[in-house]
Amino acid sequence: MGVSIDDVAARAGVSTATVSRALRGLPRVSPATRERVLAVAQDLGYVPSPSATRLATGRTKTVGVLVPFIDRWYFAHALEGIDQELREHGYNLMLFSLGGYQHGQRRRFSEPMVRKHVDALVVLCLGLSGVELEELKHAHIPLIAVGGPVVGCHGVHIDDTAAATEATQHLIDLGHRAIGQLRGGSKDEKNFIVPVLRSRAFEATMHRAGLQVRPEWNVAGNFTVLEGVAAAGRLFDQPGERPTAVFCGSDEMALGLMFEARRRGIRIPADLSVVGIDDYDFSGPAGLSTIAQKPIDHGRVAAQMLLAELNGNTGASQERIMPINLVQRETTAPPR
Rank of each mutant, 00 (worst) to 15 (best):
G13P: 06
S15H: 05
T18E: 09
T18R: 10
S20L: 07
R21P: 04
L26E: 14
T33G: 01
A41M: 02
Q42P: 00
Q42T: 09
P48S: 09
S51D: 02
A56Y: 01
V63F: 03
V65K: 00
R72Q: 15
H89F: 00
N92M: 00
L93D: 12
R106K: 13
R107I: 15
P112V: 01
C125H: 11
E134G: 05
H140T: 07
H154D: 12
A163T: 07
A167V: 08
Q169Y: 00
I172F: 11
L174E: 12
G175P: 06
I179N: 11
R183W: 03
K190D: 14
K190H: 13
R198L: 01
E203Y: 07
L211G: 11
Q212H: 15
Q212L: 15
N222T: 06
D237E: 13
E241F: 00
C248W: 08
E260K: 13
A261I: 09
R267G: 04
I268L: 05
A270V: 11
L272R: 10
S273L: 07
I277K: 01
I277R: 01
L288V: 04
T290Y: 08
I296K: 14
G299F: 00
Q304A: 10
A308E: 12
E309Y: 07
S317A: 14
S317Q: 04
E319R: 14
I324M: 15
V327G: 09
V327W: 09
T332F: 04
